[in-house]
Every structure is written in structure tokens, then in C-alpha cells.
Design a protein around this nucleic acid. Structure first.
Lengths: 226, 226
DNA sequence: TCCATAATGTAATCTTCCAGACATTTGCCT
DNA sequence: AGGCAAATGTCTGGAAGATTACATTATGGA
């Protein structure tokens, strides 16, 4: 990928607005670009090779795997978001990987140490980055505390609402979602069984409130679901 | 509180190891010290007044309250930890407060804007701070993903194990915990009903595996609980 | 010391949703 | 086109644990 394109990508990310052009050019040099297709997995966690990723196009899921092998979808990353070793510290038992959800993704990455050097030279960038991580913390806390006090149905509604806010397209009163998730994946996100999720979608479908397909989800009236 | 004592407190926190003495002295000036007693509440969230706290002594809980008024214990903060507006960004719907659990706590705090200025002058500090928040993020993720795949019993065991690791005192094979939590609070942490928690403790008590009182919890054999 | 209040103990229902066990459909690959 | 795997649809019992409803016991403050 040409330096020009790299430049454009980085220049367009909010986080790097505080850098001047020459700094961004510098950043280009340490940056690695990559394309990946649906289903591909991205591993991170090996201390040495740990990298920070910036997702330029597409969506992917962050999956955490515990000792028993349970897979748990921690977060859905969308266009423009950072992910990877935000935490930097090498530690522990839990393993995490990312998997591509959309047909293809474009992402770029820096090694953690390069990124750290950049931060130490640009305090303003360091603060922006700090805020970003803090925001992520808040998001995770929020989405989890949702899960505990809501029934499976409420959790699914909350998930759809969130999704609609993030990426929904409004078509004459309807919200339309590009569906790159299977019902199984949705259940993993909202922590319920696959069957329960299916049941809920079908109930809504029969009431004419929603239209589910593998390509898209159309919601006629978000508020009426409850 | 004298500047000297402030100095000692700050100098001893890992986060500030990267600062030199004169910088720590500077930090002392913007620092506010406070004592609080059991049950007292600390609010943060008002954008203007938001502060970052460093807990010097004691324990407290961070409680998140959602729109329905459900109270959810997000985290237990112990000696030496930072809490408060780690996220810096003022946002949204969810409200969070801290409540003192031990007889008394000692804490110091800075206004967010002062702290930000400090960060911008000390990029290394900013990086340390980022790692800290990242670590917190990891902890939250971990404790949550625990919750979803475990039964109430397993969750309680995991909680006790974690507690034992953090603050347990070993007495001739037994682990002894200073109990500043009620069973109700424990249930809030592990997300089960108060009655279920009570039942579990009593079962263990009858099997002679544990000894619960309001002052202390003594565990004879952590592994045998399962 | 006594009392009000909070914390703990116990039991009987009742709801939710998970876990199988299939059938059916969809969509991709060759 | 045809076949195969993955995704979806549907039904069942059963278990975990919430909820309700009290009884009992501690504890801190007046």
C-alpha cells in the first residue's frame, strides 16, 4: 500500500488529529497495513509481538476464551476503532482473539513499543489515547451491567438498539441493519442460548415487528418490541 | 495534613514512580486529602467537579446505578488503587458512586484537569496511566466473563478465591478474611439473590468447610468448596 | 440496657431459559 | 446441479435460582 494511502487513513482518524503532517508521515513508516477476509482470525497476546490495531473498514468481533474453552464475545469493533493490546501489560490466563465478521476488513497496526514511543513524544496524543481507553472501559462496564439485570429478551432488545444506533440505516420509519452476524453469534453476545434468540426473532417476525434474514435485519418499530 | 505526609503517600504509589521528587512536590499542591467513615458515599460524575481518587487506606465499593435503579457493584477498590473518573470524558446515562466499606478510609484526589496537565507534562506518566486503565479494563472483562459461564456457587467460590488472593491472611492452613461485606453485598457482587448466597454459606458451614461471621470469614479448605 | 433496624436463616412457589434432540432450510463449494 | 455443512426452526423436560414471605438473630446507638 502506498505511503499516500496510509497517510490518508491515519490522517482521518480522530485520534491522530492532534498530530501535524510530518508526525503522521513518521507514523506511516512504522505502520503495517493488512487486508483480511471473513472468518479470518487475528491473534494477539504474545507479549513480544503485541500490536495495536486500527480498523479502517469492516467489522470484527473480539472473543475471549477462558480456561474451560468457553467463547465469549467481548466486543464488536467497527470502522475507525482501535483494538488489540490496549492494555499493554502482558499477563495472564485469559486468551483473546479477533475474528473478521464482514466480507473483508482493512486494518493497520503498530507495534506496542513504537506506539509507546510516539505517545511519549506527543503528550497531547497520550491524553487522547488515555481518554479513549477510559471510554472503552466505560463501554464494557455499561454493556455488562446491562446484561445482569435484564432478561434474555430485554438483552436482545438492548443489543439491537445499540447496533441500530451504531450502524443502522433509516428507511422510511424502519431501521435497517446490515447483518453480518449469525443468530448463534448474537446469542454469544447477549449471553443466552441460540434457541432462545431464534425464538425471540420468530415471535417478533410473526407479530410483524421485525424481519430477519442472513443479509439484513429490518426493524419496523424498535419501541414495540418490548 | 502536612506536605510531608502527602509527599510520602504519593511517592509510594507505583504510578508516580516515574516522577522525580520535585514533580511529586508539585503534585502535592494540587492534592486534596480526605478521611471518610463506613457507609459514607462519594459521588463523582458531575462533569465540572470530577476528580480522580487514590485510595490510601481501607476498602470501598464502586456501585453503578442504571435507569431502573438497580444497584450493581462494579468493583471493590482496595488500598493503593486509583478510582473515579478514570475515563475523563463526561458522558452519559449511567450513574456511579463509591461507598466506604471499612471502618474508615483515607484518600487523596486531584481534579481531572490538574491531572491532565500533569499527564501532558509527563508523557511517561501518561503511558503508565494508560496501562493502568488498560489493566483495569482487563480485570473488569475477566470478572464478567467469569460470571456468565459459572453457576451462582462457582461464582461465589471464584469471588472468595479472588478475595483471598488479594487480602487473605493465612493462619495455619486456613485463609482468614477481614469481612467488611454483608451477604447482601456479596450477592450484589456475584449477581445472585441474597438467599442463594446465604444458603451456600450455610451449606459450607455445616460441612465444616467455612466459618462465616460479620467480622471475618475463615476458610478451611478453598479447594474443597467446589 | 433496651430498642429499632439491619443482617441472616429457612422454606415453598414459580419463572426463565438452558440443554438436548431432532427437522428443515440456506448457501457455498466443486 | 448437486451435495454438504452451517444456520435456522421447533419442541421437550428439567434445573437453577429468583421471588415471596416470614422467623430469628445480631448490633449499634439513645
Amino acid at each position: 500500500m502506498s505511503e499516500d494511502v496510509k497517510f490518508w487513513h491515519l490522517r482521518n482518524h480522530q485520534l491522530f488529529w492532534v498530530l501535524n503532517n510530518s508526525q503522521v508521515r513518521q507514523l506511516c513508516i512504522i505502520t503495517n497495513f493488512k487486508r483480511a477476509k471473513k472468518g479470518e482470525m487475528i491473534n494477539f497476546g504474545e507479549k513480544e509481538s503485541s500490536r495495536i490495531y486500527l480498523l479502517k473498514k469492516g467489522n470484527l468481533k473480539l472473543v475471549q476464551v477462558d480456561e474451560q474453552g468457553n467463547e465469549f464475545i467481548v466486543d464488536i469493533i467497527q470502522q475507525g476503532e482501535l483494538f488489540g493490546s490496549l492494555n499493554v501489560e502482558g499477563d495472564d490466563s485469559s486468551y483473546e482473539y479477533a475474528q473478521v465478521l464482514t466480507d473483508r476488513v482493512v486494518l493497520c497496526s503498530f507495534g506496542v513499543s513504537d506506539f509507546e514511543r510516539l505517545l511519549s513524544e506527543n503528550p497531547t496524543l497520550a491524553i487522547s489515547y488515555t481518554k479513549l481507553v477510559g471510554f472503552r472501559l466505560k463501554r464494557v462496564k455499561n454493556s455488562y451491567s446491562n446484561l445482569f439485570f435484564k432478561s434474555a429478551k430485554e438483552r436482545l432488545i438492548a443489543f439491537l438498539k445499540d447496533w441500530a444506533n451504531r450502524e443502522g440505516k433509516i428507511n422510511e420509519n424502519q431501521v435497517c441493519l446490515d447483518n453480518f452476524l449469525t443468530q448463534k453469534e448474537i446469542s454469544q453476545i447477549i449471553c443466552s442460548s441460540r434457541q432462545t434468540t431464534t425464538q425471540l426473532f420468530n415471535d417478533w417476525e410473526q407479530q410483524g415487528l421485525i424481519s430477519y434474514s442472513r443479509k439484513e435485519i429490518r426493524i419496523n418499530n424498535l419501541k414495540a418490541l418490548g
